[in-house]
């Protein structure tokens, strides 16, 4: 039994112009100590999926169906109060752009202490020394912990935010675009440290990014999302070397690399659909070079094509 087992998770947002189908029948499973990477373009529902896992949703969001089995318990029917025991302590999250949402009027230490005390009754001094340990752990000098966020560089803030996520020794950390706003050298260091932390603590990770190069380096398995749906999922090497889904292939072909042979970049025509009225059938069919009649009629199932290799496509590229 995997640590986290998500099946057919569907989450929609209610808006004035209709329901935004942001997460549609998504399946994934995550083992203890493993790392999954979720890639996809802006607005494809990566953050929405992550927030659904924690059930940290805005009031206009609704989980329509599906199961989130954590350690065998379904989180979907739990109340807000019951969820609190899981959030942070079992599953925690580094939010997208969290480093910009640190409160400028409190020291970083106080903000982390507050987060710790909220979940674990602990004296201030105790929590404080815990913060110092966490700082060392993520590679920050504990001497800077009672400075204010504006005195931190971007990389330091991001490390502090990661320290906050680690505060209660969670089993899973979800990192939503943890390095997107950072320069490559800083990004490299932080990703390395996160990878080390994962193996040191045997923690499971869900990385979210629009950058497949970043995902390729830190994850064991990759899930490719498009327009609210999981299109393909397999281990890293398979995804890169034998992608089955045409969208995965298009994403790879459009992605430039500084190393290796300089292949021609292939353009994918069109734009991602509006999730209020997504295309019927396969949501990718209007842009798909391999689409056939059935694609615009019926949505393909997300099935295990080979052991460990899942794909939702009527015409996978080649088996």
């Amino acid at each position: 039994m995997a640590l986290l087992e998500v099946s057919d998770l569907t989450m929609h947002y209610r808006t004035r112009s209709g329901w935004v189908q942001a997460v549609e029948r998504v399946n994934l499973s995550l083992d203890r100590g493993a790392a999954i990477g979720l890639v996809g373009e802006s607005g494809c529902g990566k953050t929405s999926l992550a927030m659904s896992l924690l059930k940290l949703l805005p009031s206009n969001a609704q989980i329509k169906e599906g199961q989130i089995l954590f350690d065998g318990n379904d989180l979907v029917p739990l109340t807000e109060d019951q969820m609190r025991r899981y959030r942070w302590e079992r599953i925690s999250m580094v939010f997208q752009a969290a480093m910009n949402s640190l409160n400028p009027v409190y020291t970083v230490r106080d903000q982390i202490v507050e987060a710790i005390q909220y979940h674990m009754p602990m004296r201030y001094e105790e929590a404080w020394s815990r913060v110092a340990k966490l700082f060392e752990f993520v590679g920050l000098d504990p001497g800077v912990m009672n400075q204010y966020p504006h005195e931190y560089s971007g990389g330091m803030k991001q490390r502090a935010v990661i320290a906050m996520a680690l505060a209660c020794d969670p089993d899973i950390i979800i990192a939503d675009e943890p390095t997107t706003a950072l320069d490559v050298i800083v990004q490299d260091r932080i990703l390395k440290r996160m990878d080390e932390i994962r193996s040191e603590l045997n923690m499971a990770m869900i990385y979210i990014s629009h950058d497949i190069a970043v995902i390729a380096e830190v994850s064991d398995r990759i899930g490719v999302m498009y327009a609210g749906k999981m299109m393909e999922m397999a281990d890293v090497v398979t995804i890169f070397q034998k992608p089955l889904h045409p969208y995965t292939f298009a994403l790879m072909s459009a992605f430039p690399s500084v190393r290796g042979e300089k292949h021609e970049l292939v353009e994918l025509p069109g734009e991602p659909p509006d999730l209020i009225s997504p295309p019927k059938g396969c949501r990718f069919h209007p842009r798909c070079p391999q689409a056939t009649a059935v694609c615009s009629e019926k949505a393909p199932e997300f099935t295990e094509v080979e052991p460990g290799h899942f794909c939702a496509c009527w015409n996978p590229r080649s088996k």
């Binding site: 490559v184 050298i185 490299d188 190069a213 390729a216 890293v236 890169f240 690399s257 190393r259």
Partner: peptide, 24 residues
């Protein structure tokens, strides 16, 4: 150092990072 830090979209490529100290 800069080029060595750029992630490569190829899981079989093991890039050798050239670390530099300090920050900008």
């Amino acid at each position: 150092a800069l080029i060595s830090a750029v992630p490569v979209p190829d899981p079989t490529f093991k890039r050798e990072a050239i670390p530099i100290k300090g920050s900008i």
